[in-house]
Amino acid sequence: MMTDVLDERLGARLLNEWQQDFPLCPAPFAELASKLGVAETAVLRMLERLRREGRIARVGAVFAPKRIGASSLAAMAVPADKLARVTEAVNRFPEVNQNYVRQHFYNFWFVVTAGSPGRLQAALGAIEQAAGLPVLRLPMVSEYRRDDDRRRSVSADTDGVLAAGLDEIGRRLVMALQEGLPFFIRPFSVLASRVGCEEREVIERIRRWSDEGAIKRFGVVVRRRASDREVKALLVMDVPDAEVGSVSRRLLDETGVILVDERERALPAWPYNLFCTVGAPSEAALIERLDALRGLPALSGFVREVLLHAPEAPAA
């Protein structure tokens, strides 16, 4: 019983404390074990267990959109009696970072990241085959975020310089990182042998890409699901392209709006290009916030829908 309690504590610390700032050194798991006060083997066993249970996707890099690699939001219309099987099939892919079930015809949503646009499309194609269902592809165009109450926007189309300028070693390393770190004593050495360079160069490149912002974070990549402490919904709208920026910034002034994304439409099935995530501490508060957004004059005339999270979502 005591061992189970200690294991749960270790698992919780790995999930909560090491999603970023992961040690970039020849023996990172030993360094991590030292900080956690346990044996290196305990860390490796727990990480493997978390991956096997589907609670983490990998330990490794999360790339910024279109800086290095590629990513896309995706959705499928899954019959209720097939939802558990499809969830299990999709979660087998290391490219899948998170998924959600929403109350909509397109009810199963997930995020896919890969080392290159070609690999992204290959992963999406493989997911379609594994699930036996077509995938709606919704890559990002621009993102709008709150930053200490200051609005900021980033165009996903203007920051692909690093991706275009990678040499062969860099391209191979991006591909290798997509699978995550191998759970060995010297994982960067294993990556170096796969890529064809020295261990030191692998670590230096990862550190440089992190400093340059091409890697958003390096650490434990958790398969996320809707928070138990906050109720969320997705408001989607069809907004003229020229008005997306002004509408997005207006939305970010409203209580409960967490983030706003502009994404490519998937016509004719999906006409919406503006995605607004809204959160609240309760379902009643969420409905009030959604009603307030619907009443904004700035949103009048736009075709829109609200996608609520399903009450029971498969573990992501």
Score class of each variant (00 low, 15 high):
residue 3 T to F: 07
residue 7 D to Q: 13
residue 13 R to G: 12
residue 13 R to A: 15
residue 14 L to V: 08
residue 15 L to N: 08
residue 15 L to G: 11
residue 23 P to Y: 04
residue 25 C to Y: 11
residue 25 C to F: 03
residue 26 P to C: 14
residue 32 L to E: 08
residue 34 S to F: 12
residue 42 A to L: 06
residue 42 A to V: 01
residue 50 L to I: 07
residue 53 E to N: 04
residue 53 E to L: 12
residue 55 R to S: 02
residue 60 G to P: 03
residue 62 V to M: 12
residue 67 R to E: 10
residue 69 G to P: 05
residue 78 V to W: 03
residue 97 N to D: 09
residue 98 Q to W: 11
residue 100 Y to V: 05
residue 104 H to R: 02
residue 112 V to Q: 00
residue 115 G to F: 10
residue 116 S to L: 08
residue 117 P to F: 02
residue 122 A to E: 15
residue 123 A to Y: 01
residue 124 L to K: 10
residue 131 A to W: 01
residue 138 L to Q: 02
residue 141 V to L: 11
residue 145 R to L: 15
residue 148 D to P: 05
residue 152 R to P: 05
residue 157 D to S: 14
residue 157 D to K: 13
residue 157 D to V: 13
residue 158 T to I: 02
residue 162 L to K: 07
residue 164 A to P: 00
residue 166 L to T: 00
residue 168 E to S: 14
residue 169 I to P: 02
residue 176 A to V: 14
residue 186 R to G: 00
residue 190 V to T: 04
residue 196 G to A: 06
residue 205 R to K: 13
residue 215 I to R: 01
residue 215 I to G: 00
residue 229 R to H: 12
residue 231 V to Q: 13
residue 232 K to Q: 15
residue 233 A to P: 00
residue 239 V to S: 01
residue 254 E to N: 07
residue 255 T to K: 14
residue 255 T to C: 12
residue 256 G to Q: 06
residue 264 E to I: 06
residue 266 A to V: 03
residue 267 L to Y: 05
residue 267 L to S: 03
residue 268 P to S: 04
residue 269 A to E: 15
residue 269 A to K: 11
residue 270 W to V: 01
residue 277 T to E: 15
residue 278 V to D: 06
residue 291 D to S: 11
residue 293 L to V: 08
residue 297 P to V: 01
residue 302 F to T: 02
residue 304 R to M: 01
residue 304 R to N: 00
residue 307 L to Q: 09
residue 307 L to F: 15
residue 311 P to H: 03
residue 312 E to M: 10
residue 312 E to I: 03
